[in-house]
Simulated assay, not measured.
Amino acid sequence: MIIGRLALKDIRWTGQGGRHEALWAIRINAAVTAVFVGGLVAISLPGGSDQVAVTDLKAHQCYVLTHEHEIDPHNGIGTLDKVRRVGCGSEHDGEVVGVWDAGRAWSDYPDDQETLESRASQECDRLTHGYARDFWRIPDGSTERYFAPTRSGWRYSGIHQVVCSVESNGAKGTLYQDPAVLGPHRTAYLDAENALDIVRAQVPDSPTADGAMSEWTVYAVHMASAEEAMVRALKAHQWPSDAAGPIAQVEASAQRAAAAWTKADGDREPNAVDRDAKAAEAIDAATPYDAARGSLHLTVSDPAPVRRV
């Protein structure tokens, strides 16, 4: 998987009436590409479709962007009033994967707005992985978004929730995968893989350790820990006989990557950190995830998605 870091873009939303009068910021969290395999199970909402404020959206709900929004396709800046909520079995623009209550993390709006943006990005990434489970089956061209409150919305209208969604024009059906339907083996594998992917996405903004030594060494510590956690999770599960071999190869690769990340953490020169981080990333890129997935009848084609965080 190739991870690319790009700047956040602002989209402004102005609510109508009551507590929705406060200005909100809609942040583009991630652009995710993956191969779409097979049909998606449709979930319909009772009561037809209706217009709602973004703040009223909940997980498992789908929506269509209305004519009341104006977004510049070049810079991602514009306004959004409400969305039209529709059943996920109908054609839609986005699906809500979860809502994170930022009020549990802070009693007041963070002094630095980027702090909220960074945490919202991480929490929405976690919710998306838990909701869709198999990230590789998200339709190509999809965009992961989060809708976060501004300082005025937080303080004067009591809006603390961050709404996380995945958008894909003209989508039908839901991205949700029920662990009970996936079964214990596929769920165990995806949980282990997703935990690593969530940490992997937090790569530092700087492409090298030069001038960002502390960020890269901290990232190396987190990646080493995540690789080791993946090994433990995979070893703890009793796999079917035809999946045991491919998954053992993933375990071995993760162990080598963990060792390389640990070495990067111990380096004291930026060039050395870059060298060992690249070695760890090369090991990860060569990991036979597709073989392990194939043995469990999961999506086996990864188009190297680019994620904007």
Rank of each mutant, 00 (worst) to 15 (best):
P270I: 00
R308V: 14
S118M: 12
R200A: 10
G76H: 03
G78L: 04
T128V: 13
D290I: 10
W136M: 01
W106E: 10
A42G: 03
R232H: 06
W261A: 08
G94M: 04
C164D: 06
R5G: 06
A209I: 05
D93Q: 06
R275S: 12
T55K: 10
A180V: 14
V221Q: 07
E68F: 10
K263E: 15
Q177E: 15
H69F: 05
A171P: 01
K235P: 01
G103L: 09
K9A: 11
L23K: 14
D10N: 14
H237G: 02
R200I: 02
T174K: 00
R307G: 01
N271L: 03
R84A: 12
V86E: 08
N271M: 04
R256M: 13
C62T: 04
L8A: 04
G158K: 10
G89W: 02
Q113G: 02
V309K: 01
S107N: 15
G38V: 10
T262P: 01
V54R: 07
D81M: 12
Y131C: 05
W106P: 12
A102K: 03
H74W: 11
I3T: 10
W154R: 06
G211A: 05
S301P: 04
I26R: 06
W106F: 15
D140A: 01
H129M: 05
P303L: 07
L57G: 05
P139N: 07
A31Q: 07
Q122D: 15
P288T: 04
Q249M: 00
H74N: 13
L182K: 11
H129G: 14
A105R: 14
G245S: 15
P288C: 02
V221T: 10
T143M: 06
R268G: 15
Y109A: 06
M1Y: 07
D302M: 08
T33W: 02
Q249G: 02
Y289Q: 07
P139Y: 04
D276C: 03
A132D: 10
G38W: 03
A102Q: 06
T55W: 13
D290L: 08
H185Q: 09
G141Q: 01
H69A: 03
H60R: 15
S49C: 07
T143V: 13
D276Y: 04
E91K: 08
R84P: 10
L8G: 11
P204S: 02
